[in-house]
């Protein structure tokens, strides 16, 4: 009898490789405006945002696809989306 292969994946690098190079715009976090609410970290679908010990968010640009959800959700407008080509 053959083994059963499940369509299951464990957390790890995706089969498409590092997805940061899909990005045409990147989020820049303006720490002075940040209120440490953590919403960018909650909403990031990858997740490519991590929080440091102080609770400030940082972007992992190797995985960030530049979708802009963090900038959209940020209540204090502390995230700017900047073109990769300018």
């Amino acid at each position: 009898m053959g083994e059963v292969i499940y369509p299951v994946t464990e957390p790890g690098e995706g089969s498409a490789g590092k997805t940061g190079n899909w990005r045409w715009q990147k989020p820049i976090i303006i720490i002075d405006k940040c209120v440490k609410c953590g919403l960018c970290w909650v909403y990031c679908p990858e997740p490519a945002i991590y929080l440091d010990k102080m609770g400030y968010p940082h972007v992992n640009y190797e995985w960030c696809k530049g979708c802009g959800i963090c900038a959209h959700e940020c209540p204090s407008k502390a995230i700017d989306m900047v073109s990769e080509y300018e």
Partner: peptide, 29 residues
């Protein structure tokens, strides 16, 4: 933690399809 049905490469997906085919034939026994 796992995720189920994640985006695969086509070559890997082909193997999944072939695997189901073999398993359903073996299921006769």
């Amino acid at each position: 933690p796992y995720s189920i049905g994640n985006l695969p490469k086509a070559d890997y997906h082909y193997i999944l399809r072939k695997n189901l085919w073999e398993n359903i034939l073996d299921a006769k026994n």
